[in-house]
């Protein structure tokens, strides 16, 4: 479904991603693990076209989408749930959800997805008229995820959704992600909580200073000390 080949990207002069190749197949949940500053977000932003790759290729459903404008990539079915949630603080919860479906022109579809979102997160229904900025951190995480689903993604990129959540909520979040996978959605999950994320995943990659240093199935990555090594001083 998604193939990233020898991707190099950075900000200005400094290279941050130095040759990353990875793959997500239909229905798979794949994690991209790595310490803070390893370049995980930059990989996702390069896929989304927010960061223009210096070299390398991104292919989605057989088509080259390298460096295409972000709205086009969203239109093709890749939806990014950004790190730090980035909800639209002055807008209502419902308006945030509507924005998730900005490219969906059929009002019926928007309405039925909105219902699904409220079913998945009843808290958001209670707060639908409230400004998103007034929600708690946990609620904002739900909102960012629900907003992403409103687009009807084929592939969901989740950038450290557990960041800043209380441990109890982290468990709930990962359960929700596991349920999304069960519906057949392909997910690329970026996390620092390696063990918890791998527990849900089919496969994983470990990123360290812009390079993939380990890759394999959940079992392969959980055995041995690849993980521990990868997270040593990044």
């Amino acid at each position: 479904m998604l193939q990233v080949a020898d991707l190099k990207a950075g900000y200005g002069q400094a290279p941050v991603v130095r040759g990353v190749s990875l793959e997500v197949n239909a229905g798979e949940l794949v994690c991209l693990l790595g310490a803070n500053g390893a370049g995980k977000s930059t990989v996702l932003k390069s896929i989304m076209g927010t960061v223009k790759p210096v070299s390398g290729r991104v292919r989605f459903l057989g088509e080259d989408i390298t460096g295409r404008p972000t709205p086009e990539i969203v239109g093709r079915g890749i939806v990014y749930v950004p790190e730090g949630k980035l909800v639209f603080a002055p807008l209502s919860v419902e308006e945030n959800l509507r924005l998730g479906a900005y490219l969906v022109r059929d009002e019926e579809t928007v309405r039925s997805r909105m219902e699904q979102a409220y079913e998945l997160f009843p808290r958001l229904w209670e707060r639908r008229g409230q400004r998103a900025g007034t929600l708690s951190g946990g609620e904002q995480t739900m909102l960012a995820l629900a907003r992403g689903l409103m687009a009807g993604p084929r592939l969901l990129l989740l950038d450290e959704p557990s960041l800043g959540l209380m441990p109890k909520l982290v468990g709930e979040l990962f359960e929700t992600v596991a349920r999304l996978k069960e519906t057949g959605l392909a997910v690329l999950l970026v996390e620092q909580r390696a063990r918890q994320a791998l527990a849900l995943a089919d496969r994983g990659y470990v990123l360290r200073t812009g390079r993939i240093v380990a890759a394999g199935t959940r079992e392969e990555l959980l055995s041995g000390d690849t993980l521990r090594q990868a997270f040593l001083s990044g």
Binding site: M48, T50, P69, T70, P71, V74, G75, V79, Y80, P82, L86, V87, F88, A89, P90, L91, E95, R98, L99, G100, Y102, L103, R147, A151
Partner: peptide, 23 residues
């Protein structure tokens, strides 16, 4: 309107608006 929503989203957070598909 939808475009109005896009304008307000851009005003609130330009980068996030792009992730929603807003031009």
């Amino acid at each position: 309107t939808r475009v109005g929503l896009g304008l307000r989203a851009t005003a609130a957070h330009r980068e996030a608006a792009r992730y929603m598909g807003v031009d």
